[in-house]
């Protein structure tokens, strides 16, 4: 019995180790992901994003409780930023969720954003998938709502909840940054603070003017997560959104779209890697690069030259297939 079987049998350590494989981007990732292909869509994905301090973790903590009260199981991926200076990170979201530490129906995993290789979104997405494959009914993905990459992660979610709080400039920033575009549900947390009514009114107006879907009106829910106010309503809205997605066939369509876009992403990344790799030792390619660098040729003409060079393309193809062979051997072993 291997680690994936163990995970399917409910072994928490095996599940944790599988998540480490994703976290560390080890070569076993493709193999692992192919093993859970059939099970990864069993559960439902909920994304929570919003600025630091908006109370996301507390909201997620109460959402876990809500889901558990319905006798359902939940996985959580809590993402915190990696320091660009040291590569380290402080993953503090567990503090808010420690009441569930001993609940076998809850599995919480903290994740750092790590490098910028584009591997971030994949590791996080795959972590969520494995959590669902392990039998969780829901998987919550919590991110710091800054930057395109994290918006991208939340986009994996079937329902995306954007968390705002009154009386800060963050909300306006969020609107400007386009974060509202990804919201299926907007939560105004800390709704006992002044400015709540105004913020809700502004949001309603904005949503009214920019309705994205005919089949879903984005609701605004006021919560006070620390007092457990509004949590039930939020969960009901998520369920409502889930039903609408199912009824309209949007859920299936969304998953299809996600699969293809991930596939394309992988293709793109690999081709890019092969090409980048070749600039180290392919003399012909290097010469073109040097000419571009010196300004002797414009980038458009240079690109035309590259794609007209059959030998260069052939060498790239060879590189690609040798990589495939190496990887095949590794996986077989």
């Amino acid at each position: 019995m291997d680690i994936v079987d163990k995970m399917f049998q409910g072994d928490r350590l095996a599940l944790a180790r599988l998540l480490s494989i994703l976290e560390n981007n080890t070569p076993e990732v493709p193999l692992v992901m192919s093993r859970i292909q059939q099970n990864q869509d069993n559960g439902y994905y909920i994304g929570f994003t919003g600025a630091p301090g908006s109370g996301k973790s507390t909201l997620v903590d109460k959402m876990i409780l809500q889901i558990r009260n319905n006798n359902l199981e939940v996985g959580v991926v809590a993402i915190d930023p990696t320091s660009p200076f040291s590569g380290g990170a402080i993953l503090g979201d567990r503090i808010r969720m420690q009441n569930h530490a001993l609940d076998p129906g809850v599995f919480i995993r903290s994740l750092a954003t790590r490098g910028s290789l584009g591997g971030l979104s994949r590791a996080a997405k795959n972590t969520a998938r494995i959590l669902n494959a392990s039998g969780k009914d829901y998987c919550i993905i919590e991110t710091v709502g800054v930057g395109q990459v994290e918006i991208d992660i939340v986009d994996t979610a079937d329902t995306t909840v954007v968390v705002l709080m009154p009386d800060t400039g963050d909300s306006i920033q969020a609107i400007k940054a386009g974060i509202m575009e990804i919201a299926d549900i907007i939560v105004v947390n800390k709704a006992d603070l002044k400015g709540t009514d105004q913020l809700i009114a502004d949001l309603m107006l904005m949503l009214h003017e920019n309705q994205r879907h005919s089949w879903w009106q984005v609701p605004v829910i006021a919560t006070q997560a620390d007092k457990n106010i509004g949590i039930k309503e939020l969960f009901e809205k998520i369920e409502e959104h889930k039903e609408v997605l199912k009824d309209t066939g949007m859920l299936v369509a969304k998953r299809k779209e996600q699969r293809v876009s991930e596939f394309m992403e992988i293709i793109e990344q690999t081709l890019l890697d092969v090409i980048l790799e070749s600039q180290k030792d392919d003399s012909e390619f290097c010469e073109i690069i040097n000419n571009v660098m010196a300004g002797l040729i414009d980038p458009y003409s240079a690109a035309k030259k590259v794609f007209g060079n059959e030998n260069l393309i052939k060498r790239w193809m060879m590189r690609l297939s040798s990589e495939i062979l190496i990887e095949r051997r590794r996986v077989d072993a």
């Binding site: 903590d61 503090g92 503090i95 808010r96 969720m97 420690q98 009441n99 620390d226």
Partner: peptide, 8 residues
């Protein structure tokens, strides 16, 4: 609730 432990 120590889940409220203020920031780190």
């Amino acid at each position: 609730e120590f889940t409220k432990s203020y920031s780190i």
